[in-house]
């Protein structure tokens, strides 16, 4: 079953800006789906329309088969939203924010309290339940919005840049939490600027640019489209550029005297690279993927010339 079905969706704002231009998108139930795109691409507008915070100009949106135009209440019941900007009352207590949201979804106070305890505990906020929300740290505020969005246990959770500005440790914890609820059956759609986040979490991906979808694929397929691989190697001894082997189509550059970045086409194996380095007496202590290896591909899709 489709969790989300968008057809010919358009949004033109009053100032004439076309934010969403004839988008078609389907997300399967149970997917962990990413909407990627640069600032102003139309991701948040699309999510705003789906969550009924933005009026669409034309097109249709169905959530678990419920059309927003004809079955809005049912569609809303299936969704939970974690917006990009903080949107809770800064003067309310943490638990009240979550419990009240349960009430807005029609949950009795007893059930809302039980669920608030469950999700605030899972997200490490239960100790802060009686504190006023404005006293929370940035990361805690983001987790509070996740707990609030889950209070009615939606079938689909939409997250608009959930880890923006969050430190690495917390980001990883949030990823683990989201993966866990996805494994329990919740469809998750997220927008993100972090390509590694999409790679780590998501099965499906859509790249949005200038209001249209320029790529809709599985993340694995996207990675397979990478023409080259980039590795960062930590070297055992100090090395200078003239020590490096020369290989056709392979680019090697020293980041510092003990860190080497190697970019090579998929046709060349890592063994070949290592053998050449070994022949030159260069010993490798450890290696890792270059973290932004999807960036070039992404930028190519959204039409940005790296050399410009």
């Amino acid at each position: 079953m489709l969790a989300l079905e968008i057809q010919k969706l358009c949004k033109t704002y009053a100032n004439g800006v076309v934010a969403v231009d004839n988008i078609d998108l389907q997300v399967e139930q149970g997917d962990f789906f990413a909407l990627l795109g640069p600032n102003g691409a139309g991701k948040s507008s699309t999510i705003g329309i789906v969550s009924s915070l933005v009026n669409k100009t034309s097109g249709s949106v169905k959530v678990f088969g419920y059309d927003l135009d004809t079955n809005l209440i049912e569609a809303k019941t299936c969704m939970g939203l974690v917006p990009q900007e903080l949107n809770f009352n800064q003067f309310e207590k943490v638990k009240d924010i979550v419990i009240n949201q349960g009430g807005f979804y029609g949950l009795s106070r007893r059930v809302a309290k039980q669920r608030a305890e469950k999700y605030l505990t899972q997200l490490g906020l239960w100790e802060k339940r009686n504190e006023v929300s404005r006293s929370l740290s940035g990361g805690m505020k983001r987790r509070l919005m996740i707990a609030r969005a889950l209070i009615h246990e939606p079938k689909m959770l939409i997250l608009d840049e959930p880890t923006a500005g969050v430190d690495i440790e917390l980001r990883r914890a949030t990823w683990d939490f989201l993966q866990n609820i996805n494994q329990q059956g919740t469809t998750i759609i997220l927008t993100t600027h972090y390509l590694e986040e999409a790679e780590y979490l998501c099965d499906g991906i859509a790249i949005v640019d200038k209001g249209t979808i320029v790529e809709r694929t599985k993340i694995k397929h996207l990675i397979q489209q990478l023409q080259s691989e980039s590795l960062v190697l930590d070297l055992q001894h100090d090395t200078v550029t003239c020590d490096l082997p020369v290989l056709e189509n392979v680019s090697m550059s020293l980041i510092d005297s003990r860190t080497l970045e190697v970019t090579f086409p998929k046709s060349i194996t890592v063994n070949t690279i290592f053998a050449q380095l070994s022949n030159k007496g260069i010993q490798i202590v450890s290696m890792r993927n270059k973290s932004n290896r999807l960036e070039e591909l992404f930028l190519a899709r959204v039409g940005v010339n790296l050399e410009a």
């Binding site: 969550s51 915070l53 019941t77 969704m79 949107n87 807005f104």
Partner: peptide
């Protein structure tokens, strides 16, 4: 935070 109500059914 009016959005809390606008996204709810």
């Amino acid at each position: 935070n009016i959005e809390e109500m606008l996204v709810a059914p």
